[in-house]
Amino acid sequence: MIDLYTTSSPNGFKATIALEELGLPYRLHHVKLSAGEHKRPEFLALNPHGRIPVITDDETGVVLFESAAILLYLAEKTGQLLPLETRPRWEAIKWLVFHASSMGPLLGQRVHFEMFAETRMPIVIDRYRQLTEEAFATLDARLADHPWLAGDAYSIADIATFGWTHIAAVCDFSFAHHLHLSRWHERVAARSAVRRGIALPAPATGP
C-alpha cells in the first residue's frame, strides 16, 4: 500500500492525479501547512526539506519526495504513463524535467510575488511574467504538432505540467492566447482522474 502525504498545491496535485489515473490503492494523509505539520519531526523524517508531496510504499520500502521522482516511480511501478519505446520515453522524461526546472520554479515564484508577497515589486513581477510567458510559448510550440508532450501518448509529463497550468488558470495567469496549450489543458482537465485528483485532499485556500 502507498501512503501519500500531501496538500492542495501544484506539486501535490501531480501525485493525486497520477495515483487516480493509475488506479493504485493508497492512503491519503492531509499535511496541513498552516498548522506547521510539514515541520514536525515525523514529517521531516520522511522529507528533511519539509515539502510535500511524499510517498511511502509498504511493498518496496521506498520513501520518495519531489513530485517528478514520485511520478517516475509510479510510472515504473505500474508500467503505465511512461512510453516503453526509447524515443517517446525520453520525450516524456525531457518534458518532465522541463516542468521541474522551468515551469514549476517560474510559476511558483510568479504566484508568490504577484499574489502573496507583502511588498509589491513591479520589476520582479514583470520579470516572472516574461519568463512564464516564454515557458507557455515553448509548450505551445511543442503541442502544435503533438497531442501530448511525449508525442502520441498521455504521460507523466502531461500530469506534471498540468499541475502548474491548473494553478495558472486558478490564479488568472492567462495562457488563452496560446491556442495549442489551451486546448491541451482543456483535454487534460476533462479527464475524470484529473478531476478527482485536483479535489484531493481539500480545496486550496492559501499559499
Rank of each mutant, 00 (worst) to 15 (best):
M1Y: 06
D3C: 01
D3G: 07
D3E: 12
L4S: 02
L4H: 04
Y5L: 00
T7N: 10
S8R: 05
S8V: 00
P10E: 12
N11P: 02
N11R: 05
N11D: 03
F13M: 06
K14R: 14
T16A: 08
I17K: 14
A18K: 11
L19W: 12
L19N: 01
E21T: 13
G23M: 09
G23L: 01
L24I: 12
L28A: 02
H30M: 02
V31T: 08
K32G: 03
L33P: 01
L33Q: 05
S34I: 03
S34V: 08
A35P: 06
A35D: 03
R40Y: 06
E42P: 02
L44F: 07
L46Y: 01
N47P: 15
N47Y: 02
P48Y: 07
P48E: 11
H49D: 05
H49Q: 06
I52C: 13
P53C: 07
D58T: 06
E59K: 09
T60L: 10
G61K: 13
V63P: 05
L64F: 14
F65R: 02
F65H: 13
A68M: 11
A68L: 04
A68V: 09
A69Y: 01
A69S: 15
A69I: 11
A69N: 13
A75P: 15
K77F: 10
T78R: 08
T78K: 05
Q80M: 12
P83C: 10
E85H: 03
E85K: 04
P88E: 07
R89M: 03
R89H: 07
W90P: 08
W90H: 11
E91Q: 01
I93P: 10
K94V: 03
K94L: 01
K94T: 05
F98G: 09
H99V: 00
H99E: 14
A100S: 07
A100K: 10
S101W: 02
M103R: 01
L106D: 12
L107E: 11
L107T: 08
V111Y: 00
V111G: 07
V111P: 00
H112K: 00
E114Y: 13
M115F: 12
M115Q: 11
F116I: 06
F116L: 07
A117Y: 05
E118P: 15
M121E: 11
M121H: 14
P122L: 05
V124H: 11
I125H: 03
R127V: 06
Y128D: 14
Q130M: 15
L131A: 13
L131M: 11
T132G: 10
E133S: 08
A135M: 08
F136S: 05
T138Q: 03
R142T: 04
L143R: 05
D145P: 10
P147Y: 13
L149A: 14
A150S: 14
A157Y: 05
A157C: 08
D158I: 12
D158C: 07
I159G: 09
A160M: 12
T161A: 09
F162N: 14
F162T: 07
G163T: 02
T165Y: 09
I167T: 15
D172V: 09
D172T: 08
F173L: 13
S174E: 11
L179M: 03
L181F: 06
R183D: 13
R183T: 11
R187Y: 07
V188T: 01
R191D: 12
R191Y: 00
S192G: 02
S192H: 00
V194M: 04
V194Q: 05
R196M: 06
R196I: 01
I198Q: 07
L200F: 00
L200T: 05
P203H: 11
P207V: 09
